[in-house]
């Protein structure tokens, strides 16, 4: 368990390098999400996005990126919403240890 000081006011991890799968579990629990295989697939994908584009995605690019990499069935807002309710781009970024997406309300 990381101490509270490792997270910012909104609960995002301050340092990307602090992230581990255990930290992801901790972040997910604070969002009331129990991580399953489908979650991990998206977490790994969004971390790949961050590596590739040096930014956390907004919803639309996340949907497109998911479609490109995991197929059209998963590249849908509904699918992402079912895994990360309310604000998938924001919550998935958070659990993946990434900064809050800039273009996200």
């Amino acid at each position: 368990m990381l101490a509270n000081s490792a997270f910012d006011k909104l609960g995002f991890l301050r340092r990307l390098s602090d992230w581990t799968p255990e930290v992801a579990e901790q972040l997910a629990a604070s969002e009331g999400i129990a991580l399953r295989e489908q979650h991990w697939e998206l977490i790994s994908l969004i971390r790949q996005y961050y590596e590739e584009f040096d930014s956390s995605p907004a919803m639309r690019p996340l949907v497109k990126y998911t479609a490109i990499n995991l197929g059209a069935n998963k590249g849908k807002s509904m699918y992402l919403l079912s895994l990360f309710p309310n604000s998938p781009a924001k919550i998935c970024s958070k659990i993946a240890g990434l900064p809050k997406p800039d273009n996200c309300l």
């Binding site: 590739e52 584009f53 040096d54 930014s55 995605p57 907004a58 639309r60 690019p61």
Partner: peptide, 15 residues
Amino acid sequence: ARNIAKLIASFPLYE
């Protein structure tokens, strides 16, 4: 600083 070239590479995903 964040990598601007990488950010620009994401533009097509934002249409």
